[in-house]
Design a protein around this nucleic acid. Structure first.
Lengths: 347, 347
DNA sequence: GTAAAATGTGCAATCGATTGCATATTAAGA
DNA sequence: TCTTAATATGCAATCGATTGCACATTTTAC
């Protein structure tokens, strides 16, 4: 049970003071080369391990960053977390992962707990239920910087990183139109966080810009899970005239539709083309493979991390909190489920 | 810029001492009901937020747990992390996520950094390269408890949680045999961490126990990624007599094989049956859906978390570190890729 | 009514590292 | 030789919360 050595132990070992040891370890230029070497040697010899907690207390800086996500095991969030960790790791910061479970009260508690843990900042994706942002403002008032990613809000004056959901949707729908689709349905969510609103807007605008009539019957709201996609698809099949394409705001929804279509022997993409959203890992393994919109999750993690640390370093000088949106351009991944043009006349 | 209030502020506000405030906030029974109420009221009024760092320094307990995984975005690890966080969250602990990237030196650095951060314990899955465990032993010597999950080792006297890879493999292969397969190939890894060794052993034993001859040509080593699976499958197709089933130690490997088989118009499972390992999210979306072995990742997270905290609480009393293996029974998920029996004579 | 026990607070040290302000030593300059 | 400027360390306070011990006040017991 090795009793931990402190700078005081090193100090008395060398007959100097803790101040000198501290300075030596921190490469303070006021320490002579000799003592520095002696300290380093003694530190190794005594198996010294710095106590970050003590330093954090004194410095008011913990080198910890809180990261709040709805759940850690969704592919998208897991990937962003990975990206953030990579950046943080580079700079000797550690990240504390917290899950809000999309629960408003949980999110409040979490934010408070992170404040108590004295994190140097918070990177978060807002919970679906969250409409009031006082808990985040409380952080800002304490001088704890925040960066939001993916699920953001204009109600907080903080830096944000997101993808251009509008653009992604617009491209996806334009692609379908260029593949010859004329009746394109859309699966969306009743939850009006901006990402779904934007995807819907992109869908609508793409139709308009290409002169394709908008039909309210073709816009279906659901939770966008697999089963929801199935239900929505079944509902569409009841229509007098079924759509010739579906743009789902989630890959799971699209997958549900794909299952139903296959069960009914409706050909994809010849009779109905499909496009999802998120580029979930499974989309490249389905049959047909699923066209989808990649959200650049790992990149988003990197960008968010960099933005956060840039801000952290600059804000020592500047006082005021900036608000700057970084919008990543999503990438349409065209796969078999929407590629009709190359199959001309094959059905 | 609300300057943070401390217990001293509360104390002087109420004309008492910080000791009393501290005791009141911690529900120390030696404090009268009146002062306790007054303190709580003042705390709220002054917007007091406890400083965990200060408490951690004094108590030698940070309420932080380090979690080390190879990468945070693999579905399995993401899910375990989620489970651990759920348990930790319940007990007011926070988890620090670190990625070792399967890099031995990185792992060493990470372990050290966590020690410096004064985490109360570490939960880890060992990197693939790691053969020497001194860095972990150093933690133990400092009194920092460790629990390992999934990728474990007998060289550390710590509690471990894993699935019964042997059993999972045994069941998978037995299942194939019961479906009438007689020439079963196995995709394994050259990396000899125990999980792959155990899966290989399960494969071998299942063959033996059912009187199916073992053929070294049918055991292929690779990194078990998608492309590796493709290569291995192509290699198998070169054999004079191709196998009628493949048990891959990874879902990706199995998926690669599936792709090749479909390209060659070889029927699954009629001509070649497939079983993977891990129950990756995509396996239920392939066509045919992929039979696989579920690793109970979320459960593993929960169990690991509970085991860890049980140990943390009990060890105050006991001195010696225990070593106890918790082995979860994996679950064979039978899907289309191996279900020949229900298709008798259909080809 | 007095000793003994219980109750409620305060004092001061502690956890380990950091740092502004001396102080001591040495080197440089006149 | 003596002053001035570097150079290298030490002193002591600080970050904020916790806690053993001491002390004062009340309550209980006989």
């Amino acid at each position: 049970m090795a009793t931990k050595t402190t700078i005081h132990d090193i100090a008395s070992f060398l007959n100097i003071t803790a101040s000198t040891v501290s300075r030596a370890l921190n490469n303070n230029p006021r320490i002579s080369e000799n003592t520095r070497k002696a300290v380093l040697k003694a530190a190794k010899q005594l198996n010294y391990q710095p106590n970050n907690i003590a330093a954090a207390l004194r410095n008011g800086k913990s080198n910890l960053i809180g990261v709040i996500v709805p759940t850690a095991d969704r592919a998208f969030f897991a990937s962003v977390v990975r990206g953030i960790e990579e950046v943080a790791n580079e700079l000797d910061y550690k990240i504390i992962i917290c899950q809000s479970y999309d629960d408003y009260n949980k999110e409040i508690q979490t934010v408070e707990a992170l404040a108590n843990a004295r994190v140097d900042g918070v990177i978060a994706s807002i919970g679906k239920e969250t409409l009031n942002f006082e808990h985040y403002n409380a952080l800002l008032n304490k001088g704890i910087p925040i960066v939001l990613f993916d699920r953001t809000t204009d109600q907080l004056a903080v830096n944000q990183v997101m993808i251009d959901d509008y653009e992604g949707a617009y491209e996806a729908v334009s692609h379908l139109i260029s593949e010859g689709c004329k009746r394109i349905a859309h699966f969306t969510s009743p939850i009006k966080i901006s990402i779904y609103k934007e995807r819907l807007r992109g869908y609508t605008d793409a139709l308009k810009d290409h002169g394709v009539p908008f039909d309210q019957d073709l816009v279906l709201e659901s939770n966008l899970q697999l089963e929801d996609g199935r239900q929505s698809m079944l509902q569409l099949l009841e229509l007098r005239e079924i759509p010739d394409a579906i743009f789902s705001a989630s890959d799971y929804g699209a997958m549900g539709a794909m299952q139903v279509l296959k069960e009914k022997n409706i050909k994809i993409p010849q009779q109905v083309a499909l496009v999802g959203f998120a580029n979930e890992p499974f989309t490249s393994f389905t049959d047909p493979t699923l066209t989808t919109v990649d959200q650049l999750s790992l990149t988003m993690g990197h960008v968010t991390g960099k933005l956060f640390f840039d801000q952290l370093n600059s804000q020592d000088k500047n006082g005021p909190q900036r608000m700057q949106k970084t919008i990543l351009k999503p990438k349409l991944i065209v796969r078999q489920s929407s590629l009709r043009s190359s199959l001309e006349g094959s059905y």
